[in-house]
Design a protein around this nucleic acid. Structure first.
Lengths: 243, 243
DNA sequence: CGGAGTTTTGATTAGCGTCAAACACTGTGG
DNA sequence: CCACAGTGTTTGACGCTAATCAAAACTCCG
């Protein structure tokens, strides 16, 4: 509900340039020759404070958004009020890929840290996707990747133990951050509360604490400040696939 | 591995006409005037016997397929061999919507009953999607629906009890069949074995049996032959959302 | 230093898995 | 028509995973 601070509304110099990975680069600068007909979609930067829910399920989204800075997560709320986190969003991620195509989506999005995101004009964006075959391909690829992740998540929740799910979440975040060059020495920023992990892996916060304690005692991970360090990567990998 | 019987290879008169719902109609006959430039994608009908796995994870798919007749399911196999069913496929469903765009997908597809499906040429189909805005919209809509279902499934597996998941699966199938006019008097074809339900809901077959027994004893459902009848719809709905 | 949010720990219990055996259903060949 | 095999379902006994409840400890910030 609260308005983002003015500092967060200022232009974002990093967005659409390099750091966000391929998708934003492709979108902001049409790369194929045939694309000159389609101008880059109009964009507008916005910010949100940590803990702020900046998209609500079934609210009209005025545009398709790309996360520029900070972490977020997409979630849905069950009728009884419990929360299921569907995905964590890292810089460069679209806030729901298929949401690009649709005004109203059934998920909400909350900022985990202070974030900045870039809202593209939907019409422009769809136009761009349809006109530029490179963008079309890129976009299909993103849809596929998102679907693959959703399938992975279904398999995890349906078939794996709490230990495995937590291990896989850690590894999955590490891999994604690694692509973004944000892992050094097996350590990376980790702004998640145990409640978030619980809501993503389908267990209770209490049990997440026990799993973490077990992992720590086994010398697998170390958490200091808002950083997580993997101390025994092979073993964590083994656990994540075990059984 | 076995070749489908010749009867299954004969032309499918129902496909692409009416019964499959909007998607095939749109795809087989471009509806918007602007679409005359894009011919309907080439298509080829094929069949598979019940239990046959007719697409294997990461095999090259020669085309994007639409299920014409019979039931199937998409699944993935965990490293330890266990199976997670990702979705049940009913006549008119695309076999993985995003798979339309990609040659190799990470899921396998098996026939639940004898099936007939229609393989569209991928290049033609993508062309059609890009050229005809109605098809593009329809396709986006299908992607969105598929993503919504995946999200629902994540929430179910992460947050609901076995009773709820089974109830929701039954209701979800009933709703989808209802749209296809294949529900009469709250009863519908039900070719699933309890093993399938177990693999879809993330429980064991033994427990599925217990849930079914409980539902039967409570006068909620009745299973005869390969048909399922819902006897107390409001109560089944209540259970599916309870807690 | 106070207070809210978060994590840890312990005790108990519910839900579901595992194992094993019995039972039912269907189609096959004699 | 029956025997039999193969597949699928039901039932019981028991054990383990993770939920629940409750309290204490710890952290972060004002």
């Amino acid at each position: 509900m609260g308005q983002p601070a003015t500092a967060l509304d200022s232009p974002c110099t990093t967005c659409s340039v390099r750091e966000l990975g391929v998708c934003s680069t492709v979108l902001s600068r049409p790369v194929s020759p045939a694309a000159s007909a389609a101008p880059a979609p109009r964009q507008q930067h916005r910010g949100a404070r940590a803990r702020q829910t900046f998209y609500r399920a079934n609210d009209a989204m005025d545009g398709a958004s790309l996360l520029c800075r900070g972490w977020g997560f997409a979630f849905s709320i069950l009728p009884d009020g419990r929360r299921q986190i569907l995905s964590f969003l890292l810089p460069g991620d679209f806030i729901s890929t298929v949401g690009v195509l649709k005004e109203r989506v059934g998920v909400s999005v909350q900022a985990l840290t202070d974030v900045r995101y870039c809202a593209y004009d939907r019409t422009d964006l769809i136009n761009c996707i349809r006109t530029d075959s490179k963008v079309f391909d890129k976009f299909s690829e993103l849809c596929n990747a998102e679907r693959d992740e959703a399938n992975e998540m279904v398999a995890d929740l349906g078939r794996r133990t709490a230990d495995q799910r937590v291990a896989r979440l850690i590894l999955s975040l590490m891999t994604r951050l690694s692509v973004r060059k944000q892992v050094r020495d097996n350590a990376f920023e980790f702004p998640l509360r145990q409640q978030h992990i619980a809501d993503a892996t389908g267990v209770t916060p209490v049990h997440v604490s026990r799993v973490f304690t077990a992992f720590r005692n086994a010398g697998l991970i170390e958490i200091k400040g808002r950083f997580l360090k993997v101390l025994n990567l092979p073993e964590l990998r083994r656990i994540s696939n075990a059984r």
